[in-house]
C-alpha cells in the first residue's frame, strides 16, 4: 500500500487544474481576450441588417465586431464597434465604413481605407455607414432586362397570333410562295425541254459540235501546212536582219568613201584656175 496517496491525488488535481487554467489563459491571450480594445462610434439611417456581434472586416480579415446599437434622439442608429489595439492602424480619418450585404451569407461592416498615411480616426468622431446592398443592386440591374424580356414575349405573342390567323400576312406569303414554286416548276420543265433540244443540236449526230470538230481538224491540217511557210518567213526575217546589218556597214563604207571623194574634189578644185564663182547670191 503506497504512502501519502491523498497528498499525491491532491497534487495531481492542483497541477491539472493549473495546467487547464494556464492553457485557457494562453488561448484567451492569443485570441486577444486580454488585449486593449478601442471603441469607435458609427451612425446609420437604418438598423436593418445590423446586428450586435457582426464582424468588422478590413481587406477580408476580421479586425473587430459590433458591440452595441442604440437609437438616438435624432432617429439615427448609433453603432459602437470594438477594435483591438493591434488593428486600429487600419482605421484612419479617410476610412469609409460600408455595410455590405452579400447575396449569400451574413451582413458585415467593411472598412475601406484608401490612404493609410492619413491621420488615425479620433474615437469621438462618428462616421456614417454607407450601405452596399448587393441584392437590391442586382435587382435594379436585372429589372431593365426583365422589362425587355416582357416586351419580347409580347411581340412573340403578336407574331404567333398573326401566324395563327387564316387570313393573316404569313398565310398570304405562304400561299404566294406556293404559287411561285408552281410557276418555277413550270419554267424548269420548259428549261429541261430546251436543254434536251440544245443537247441534241450540239451533241447530236448532226450537231454543231461535230461540225466544229471537223472544222478544227481541217484547221489543224491547214495550220500544219503553214508551218513550213512560217519557217521560211523566219529564215527570211533572219536573213533580212543580217542584210540590214550588212547594209549599215556598207553605208558606213559609202559615207567614208563619199567623204574621201569630197575631200579629193575639194583638193582638185583648189588646183583648178579660172573656176566658177562660189559666192552665194540672190537669184
Amino acid at each position: 500500500m503506497p504512502h501519502n496517496i491523498p497528498l499525491k491525488v491532491g497534487l495531481f488535481i492542483v497541477i491539472t487544474s493549473l495546467m487547464i487554467i494556464s492553457f485557457i489563459g494562453y488561448v484567451a491571450y492569443k485570441k486577444g481576450f486580454f488585449a486593449k480594445e478601442h471603441t469607435y462610434t458609427l451612425s446609420s439611417k437604418s438598423g436593418e441588417n445590423l446586428t450586435e456581434g457582426m464582424p468588422v472586416v478590413f481587406s477580408g480579415f476580421k479586425i473587430g465586431r459590433v458591440d452595441s446599437m442604440e437609437l438616438n434622439s435624432d432617429g439615427l442608429v448609433i453603432i459602437k464597434i470594438k477594435v483591438p489595439d493591434q488593428h486600429i492602424k487600419w482605421i484612419r480619418a479617410e476610412s469609409i465604413f460600408i455595410l455590405e450585404k452579400p447575396l449569400i451569407g451574413s451582413a458585415r461592416i467593411y472598412i475601406a481605407t484608401a490612404n493609410l498615411n492619413s491621420p488615425p480616426l479620433p474615437e469621438k468622431v462618428i462616421p456614417r455607414i454607407v450601405e452596399a446592398n448587393d441584392i437590391n443592386e442586382a435587382i435594379k440591374n436585372v429589372k431593365p432586362f426583365v422589362e425587355k424580356i416582357n416586351t419580347i414575349a409580347d411581340n412573340i405573342q403578336i407574331l404567333t397570333s398573326t401566324l395563327a390567323e387564316p387570313d393573316g400576312d404569313m398565310n398570304k406569303i405562304l400561299s404566294n410562295a406556293k404559287d411561285i414554286t408552281r410557276q418555277i416548276d413550270g419554267i424548269l420543265k420548259k428549261v429541261d425541254t430546251m436543254a434536251v433540244k440544245t443537247d441534241e443540236r450540239i451533241y447530236g449526230k448532226e450537231g454543231v459540235l461535230l461540225h466544229i470538230t471537223t472544222l478544227l481538224k481541217d484547221m489543224i491540217v491547214k495550220l500544219k501546212k503553214l508551218d513550213p511557210i512560217l519557217d521560211n518567213m523566219n529564215k527570211i526575217s533572219a536573213d533580212t536582219a543580217d542584210t540590214t546589218k550588212d547594209m549599215k556597214l556598207l553605208r558606213k563604207d559609202i559615207d567614208s568613201m563619199v567623204n574621201d571623194i569630197t575631200g579629193m574634189v575639194n583638193d582638185i578644185d583648189k588646183l583648178i584656175p579660172f573656176k566658177k564663182e562660189t559666192q552665194i547670191k540672190l537669184p
Binding site: 583648189k270 588646183l271 583648178i272 584656175p273 579660172f274 573656176k275
Partner: peptide, 8 residues
C-alpha cells in the same frame, strides 16, 4: 595651170 592654182 599650176600658177593659176597657186595664185587663186
Amino acid at each position: 595651170f599650176f600658177l593659176g592654182g597657186c595664185s587663186a
